[in-house]
């Protein structure tokens, strides 16, 4: 069934923004990333609507745009604006855990973009590996090794922080 761009934006824009926040770790960068992607989606809606799953197609566009910052212009624009805004603190829950989670969040920011994307897709979007592979345009094995490398890095950080 074909949906219109308007319907798609109504139902999916919020989820895409959340996804972009998880990828970039920053609300402004997330907004720029989603804007840039959705402008192209709107201009080429017929092509997007023809895809088996427009949602997955758009997610793939957005993910590639994020991973491939050299070709896209959005990251450059964002960087020109200066450092990511740190004035927006995440709401804290239990004091002890909040420290850990903020720390995990900052470690995530240091991961290579593709690795971070695989973590977001598995642990935030809860997608099966096959679908992650499709979004990233790589083999399932690559997804798994990418996740495992990312987790290893995080564990090392963890160990260092606790020692």
């Amino acid at each position: 069934m074909l949906v219109t761009y308007e319907e798609f934006a109504d139902s999916r824009l919020a989820a895409l923004l959340r996804y972009a926040v998880m990828l970039t770790g920053d609300p402004h960068q997330a907004q720029d990333l989603v804007q840039e992607t959705m402008v192209r989606v709107q201009l080429n809606w017929r092509r997007v609507a023809r895809a088996d799953s427009p949602e997955r197609y758009v997610r793939r566009m957005l993910t590639n745009q994020y991973v491939d910052w050299r070709r896209g212009s959005w990251m450059r624009r964002v960087l020109l604006r200066g450092e990511p805004d740190e004035a927006v603190p995440a709401p804290a829950d239990h004091a002890q855990h909040a420290v850990d989670r903020d720390q995990v969040w900052s470690w995530l920011a240091r991961l290579p973009r593709r690795q971070r994307a695989t973590l977001v897709l598995r642990y935030y979007e809860d997608l099966p590996d096959a679908e992650i592979a499709e979004i990233l345009g790589c083999a399932v094995g690559t997804v798994r090794s990418s996740i495992s490398r990312a987790l290893t890095t995080l564990r090392t950080e963890y160990a260092e922080a606790c020692s």
């Binding site: 824009l13 959340r18 926040v21 998880m22 997330a30 995440a90 989670r101 995990v104 935030y124 987790l151």
Partner: peptide
């Protein structure tokens, strides 16, 4: 912890 870190930062999402 990764799961929790993501969930906790959902609040950063800008309005649509």
């Amino acid at each position: 912890d990764v799961r929790a870190a993501f969930a906790q930062h959902e609040a950063l999402t800008p309005p649509t």
